[in-house]
Design a protein around this nucleic acid. Structure first.
Lengths: 198, 198
DNA sequence: GTACGTTGCCAACAAGCGTTGACCAACGAT
DNA sequence: ATCGTTGGTCAACGCTTGTTGGCAACGTAC
């Protein structure tokens, strides 16, 4: 309905358009606003102002606010291949990876903010658990059936710490450096991954 | 300013008023709405409708929306006295306590929802860490200086799991029963409380 | 050069928000 | 019986929100 490709020729899935720069500017502004202020307070008008265009352009290119949100919050955790990692250091590897990825992409903070508030965001979070964290953990899981539970355990500790550090900013959590976080959390994650089911 | 006690006599800190029932109805409705929908989407009008009164009453009794929020989300974690607990079972005790308290008070879910979105909510969360979790953990902490860090570690795991179970509702986390959650999380919490600093 | 799709701005809409002040009814002390 | 205080409703305010439709400029293909 709000689609702008007139009759997308099947041979080229995405041709460059003159408005690509605008689209990109909107996405960038939307990411910043969603991350900083959450879904409701990030207004289309503010996003458009940041992108230096008219609010109606946002509607034209992304249909409505939820469409913009979904487009702006496609997240790639860049999960490493854990099968190449020393099994005894899986926890350390994972915790360090998440610290890096979290601090390199403010969308993750925004994702948590919104995933906790809006249904569309919660579904996004679930899909990240299911499609990105799940498979990687299944690959190193002794019993494949247990992978979903182990993934959610790992995720709960990682997200919990991210919440404390980057969203709520509890002082003692903010004060920890990477090595301290790894030293505390890695054994936990390691146990969730490899310990016998209790 | 929006205070309704004309000249509160110091001898009786809180006399019963005729409007106590209304005040309570507002608070109950506010808790439900804030918990279910977060700060922005829980409108004063909707809360007033739930409480079967006029929106202006909310303003009269609680000043403004933030005042209502603060009044509706005073939270008591009912922390137990850990010094009476077998030191080897501190983790188990704490995890079980949090499961109970979380499922008996939907305000906690609302608290997390709002604490992640609004500044006033984040401050509430920090104060809960500082004033309720902190002291209890300091009492069982080998080195008192380390108590804040250990408290935030415990909190990160507890809140992370609560997020997965009660807010985002990731299926594998919802499917765990209390004993399973305790079996997985208790050793983690135990280590955060009593292990040597790594 | 003319027709047409694209890009963009502008002005407006209806709805909903938090908040305010005027006004009335019931109560309690005098 | 009266008068100030309290509990409550009503109607409106100013504002912001997401969203829409019209219209002008630009570029390109024929």
């Amino acid at each position: 309905m709000a689609d702008n490709e007139p009759s997308a020729p099947p041979e080229s899935p995405a041709r460059p358009r003159r408005s690509d720069a605008t689209r990109a500017a909107i996405l960038t502004a939307a990411r910043d606003r969603f991350a900083a202020e959450g879904y409701e307070r990030a207004t289309i008008r503010a996003i458009a102002r940041d992108a230096a265009i008219d609010p109606s352009m946002v509607m034209r290119y992304y249909g409505n606010k939820e469409g913009l949100f979904l487009a702006a919050t496609e997240i790639d955790l860049r999960m490493p291949d854990l099968s190449a990692v020393d099994p005894a250091r899986l926890g350390e590897r994972l915790v360090r990876h998440f610290l890096d990825v979290w601090e390199s992409d403010e969308r993750l903070t925004g994702m948590v903010r919104v995933g906790v508030t809006v249904d569309a965001g919660a579904e996004r979070l679930r899909s990240i658990f299911r499609d990105q964290l799940g498979p990687v953990i299944a690959a190193v899981c002794p019993v494949p059936d247990e992978a979903p539970v182990r993934a959610v355990l790992v995720g709960s500790q990682i997200v919990g710490m991210a919440l404390a550090r980057y969203v709520v900013r509890v002082p003692p959590a903010v004060g920890l450096d990477h090595d301290e976080v790894v030293a505390w959390l890695a054994p936990t994650v390691q146990r969730y991954l490899t310990a016998e089911r209790p």
